[in-house]
Structure formats: C-alpha cells, structure tokens
Amino acid sequence: MKGSLKSILLLGLFLLLSFFPFLFPDPYLIHLLILSFIFSVLVSNWNILFGYMGIFCFGQQAFFGIGAYSSALLALKLGVPVPLSIVFGGFVASLSSILIGLPTLRLQGAYVALVTLAFAEVMRMTCSNWVGMTRGQLGLTVTALIPGAGRVGYYYVAFLLLLLSTIVLLKVMRSSFGYVTVAIRESQEAADSLGINVIKYKISAFLLSSFMSGLAGALYAHYIRILTPDIMSLHLMITILVMGMLGGIGTLPGPILGTFVLTFLSEYLRDFAQFRFIIYGTLIILAVLFVPGGLVSGLRSVETKLKGKRCQEGSS
C-alpha cells in the first residue's frame, strides 16, 4: 500500500515535471526549475562526500566552477560543440578532484575542510587573475547550448541531467558502495580492517562527485551565459551547505528537496536579498535544532506517525 502510494506520487511528479513547460509556460517558473535541477545535481553529489562518506568537503564550488570555465573556454576558443564541451568540463573537474582528493586522504575533519576550501579559493583567484584567458572579473560571454536554444530546451537538458545524476547515485548507493561510504564515515579504521580499500573508494567518490558537479557547472554557464570567477565563491558553498542541511544530508532525496525549497524560497524573499545569509543562518540553526535529519527525516517521521495511526484505526 505504502510503497505503491509513494511510487504513484513519484510518477505524478515525474509526469508533471516532464510536461511542465507546456502546462505552465511561465518563463519565470521555468527558470527557477532549471536552477533547481542544476543545483540539485550539485548538492546531491556534494552529499556523497559530505553526507555519506563524512569527508568535510568545502570546495565543491570549485568543481562547479572548473566545469563551467573548461566548457565555456573550450567552446569559445576552439569552437567545440557545446554538448561535447560540457562533458569535457565534467572530466576536467574530475581530474582536478584528484588534486584536491589526494591531500585530503590522510587528513581528518577540520583539516579537510580547510584544504578543500583553500583549493577552491586558489581556483577562484586563478580565474580572477588569469585575465588573458578568462577576462577576470569582466567575465566571459558564454556560447549558447545550441545556437538559438530557448528556455524550454535548457529545461529539458537540465531535467535530464538531474535524472541521470539521480539514477547513477541510486544505482551506486544501492550497490555495496553504499555500505562502503557509510562504513568509512563511521570508522575509517574499522572499514580498513574489514577489507575495504578506503583510499580507492574515497578517490572514486571524489571522481564521481566532481564529474557530476562539473557537468552541472558547465550547463549552468551555458545557460546563464555570463561567467565570472564569482561562480566559485564561498557564497555558493554556503548555499550548497544550507540546501543539503535543510533537506537532509546522508539521504538521496534530501539534497534535491532542500535545493527546490531554498531556490523557490530565496526568490520569494528577494526583497530581503541583503539579509540572505542571515536567513540562511537562521534556517540552518532551526533545521539543526528541530529537524536534525532535515526535511526528509521530518517527512519520514510524519509518515511513520500516519502509518501508526492507520494501524490503530485498522485494529480498533
């Protein structure tokens, strides 16, 4: 009963999103959904490192930015077709994750946070100062996905990317890799002593997470079409953190839920833009205090309560 209700809801949601641009041809709503799709990919893949493996990665914005710049430059300077250059952006981000992944393998906790954060800042400064290549703060004007592509085109590409990322993550986390990640988070030493090659799997997680984040960043750049080094700013990382914590880290639906809620919320709170980080901060504190597992755990406890009620009704 329960399971089928859930699948019906999910199917409904899938159909709604599949036909959304035709049902509600409101460019502004479509824009918000595109952003939600792209950021869902980013937050979900950060969650693999942070939520599942317990790696304190605070440099995810770098993978997003590296994907964006690699793809934008490749398309701009060499005229590579954009769909190809986006995939290339994913690979470059993935490669860069080896640079950042290796030094963090032997570190723990706060040190990992510092190293990853520093890495992202170095990347941002590089893009900012390498004016000959990136035009620095002036920014690049980025090629369109396909010449003349409209909003609806971007909508479907972003939607597909989120589907792809979600299917990959589902597949991977339901394989024994899911156990590996949690085992490493709970005790690296114990995992190692039970035959798990911790280093190999940490690197695999970095490769996957940064590849997907790089794809998301590249698509974002070709959609917004203006690219400045600010794409790699700490603000983005804080946003990722809030989206993840709000929805529930260490779960698959959590980051997606959190991203959608925050993307729409921050649009409706636009008038208070200058207070954005105060609002974010408050949200985090409230989430940690009242729903420590995020919205997903809140929903789950409501679900079990409803279920309990139904059982009671059934038995009486």
């Binding site: 024994s176 156990y179 590996v180 949690v182 085992a183 988070r185 709970e186 005790s187 030493e189 114990a190 995992a191 039970l194 035959g195 798990i196």
Partner: peptide, 20 residues
C-alpha cells in the same frame, strides 16, 4: 568501533562482503 548508524546485520554483511 562499530558502524553505529548501521544495523547489526549490516555490520556483519560488510565483513562478509569485503573480507576477501
């Protein structure tokens, strides 16, 4: 150093799965 957020069975499954 048990894997605290996993069940007892899952803890043992990890040993069985990766032990060799």
């Amino acid at each position: 150093k048990p894997f605290n957020t996993l069940t007892v069975l899952e803890n043992a499954v990890i040993g069985a799965r990766f032990g060799k």
